[in-house]
């Protein structure tokens, strides 16, 4: 039997959070962490977590699994069980609503700050705007972000300044638009980020790169933004 320790907190009942230990019979199968959560919820319906697509594209079930942020639905037990133990906690650094569900308001607010939409006020053609395959390739590794918050909630700079530092996820998206050959908002976007906190609180710790379930590299994107900010300042 696998020992599964899960963070529990119901604000209506509990004065403080606690870890509850469940047993789970793996029947020798290497299932996903989400399968374990679903099975435990079937037995104890009060256990609360978010989930939707169960295939790693919707970004609902970001949790902290045995110390590392990841998506429960695409994390197999073999990757995270140590000494027959599995520990599941909410993503760190943001307020907990209940059990594994965090309040993501600040995370989304940072995303909204970067103007996450194409800016191009020139009249649109009757067909699509053209873009070369080479220019389109510049968006690879950026547009695939699923807003799961695994990266930002693994980032010490975001823990310290969740209201002022955009965080790796938001900055990855900021660069997604800066890198888009169809976008005309570069000046405005850079001006918006040009302060001591929004970008420059990134200290290159690279936790974001370590945990991104989609294999994306926010640190690299942040590096590109830094360069753009520095060259636009000179």
């Amino acid at each position: 039997m696998l020992e599964v320790s899960i963070y529990r907190y119901n604000p209506e009942v509990d004065s403080e959070p606690y870890m509850q230990v469940f047993s789970y019979d793996t029947q020798g199968k290497d299932v996903m962490v989400l399968d374990v959560l679903e099975k435990l919820k079937a037995e104890d319906p009060t256990l609360v977590f978010r989930r939707s697509c169960r295939e790693g594209v919707c970004g609902s079930d970001g949790v902290n699994i045995s110390g590392k942020n990841g998506l429960a639905c695409i994390t197999p037990l073999s990757e995270v069980v140590k000494n027959n133990k599995l520990v599941i906690r909410p993503l760190p650094g943001l307020p907990v609503i209940r059990d594994l569900v965090i309040d993501m308001t600040q995370f989304y607010a940072q995303y909204e700050k970067i103007q996450p939409y194409l800016i191009n006020n020139t009249p649109a053609p009757a067909i699509e705007r053209l873009q070369s395959p080479e220019d389109r390739a510049k968006l690879d590794g950026l547009y695939e972000c699923i807003l799961c918050a695994c990266c930002s909630t693994a980032c010490p700079s975001f823990w310290w300044n969740p209201d002022k530092f955009i965080g790796p996820s938001g900055l990855l998206q900021a660069y997604r638009f800066l890198a888009d050959s169809r976008d005309r908002g570069t000046e405005d976007r850079l001006a918006n980020l040009d302060d001591p906190f929004s970008v420059f609180r990134c200290h290159g710790i690279m936790n974001c790169v370590q945990v991104c379930p989609k294999g994306l590299n926010p640190t690299k994107a942040i590096g590109h933004i830094r360069s753009m900010l520095l060259s636009s300042a000179t």
Partner: peptide, 23 residues
């Protein structure tokens, strides 16, 4: 359809591209 798809592209949808730059 074409009008609706072009609108999405104008909004920024990152379609894959052919060598001539079209979707």
């Amino acid at each position: 359809g074409p009008e609706a798809v072009f609108e999405l592209e104008h909004m920024g949808l990152p379609f894959s591209r052919n060598d001539n730059g079209r979707i």
